[in-house]
């Protein structure tokens, strides 16, 4: 039951991780923050997380690549995809690959924390 409270936040904007980490920790999550998707993937190989929050467009592997990787490696992990510019195609593609939720920037911290909470519960269920 401890595993699903582990959250990974991946966004090449460092401020996103900086703000999400304390907000999520306040709710009792264990948070690991990454700004580099390649490094995040290698971390995902070692450890499974209850929830993954990832940006879509990044240098190197994109959020979609990370999503696909997680779907194969850790099917139980719930993935929340955030993006700076939502198009119908990307959101379709994300749901096709089994993303838990698709969030457009700018988002509200509180809402995202609530969403992570819900996703973590879904992961345990």
């Amino acid at each position: 039951m401890s595993e699903d409270r582990d959250v990974m936040v991946l966004d090449d904007e460092p401020i996103v991780g900086d703000r999400l980490r304390p907000a999520l920790e306040k709710e009792g999550f264990t948070v690991e923050v990454f700004t580099d998707s390649a490094m995040a993937i290698s971390r995902l190989k070692e450890k499974s997380f209850g929830v993954l929050v990832t940006d879509m467009k990044m240098r190197g592997p994109s959020g979609m690549d990370v999503l696909r990787f997680v779907r194969e490696k850790a099917p139980k992990t719930q993935v929340i995809v955030i993006t700076g510019y939502a198009t119908i195609e990307t959101s379709h593609e994300a749901s096709a690959w089994g993303a838990y939720q698709f969030v457009a920037k700018p988002f509200k911290l509180k809402e995202l924390v609530k969403l992570v909470d819900k996703a973590a519960k879904a992961a345990t269920a």
């Binding site: 996103v16 510019y85 700018p106």
Partner: peptide, 10 residues
């Protein structure tokens, strides 16, 4: 959207 989001959440 990136800086806007950063401003909003901060």
């Amino acid at each position: 959207n990136n800086p806007l989001n950063n401003v909003a959440i901060t």
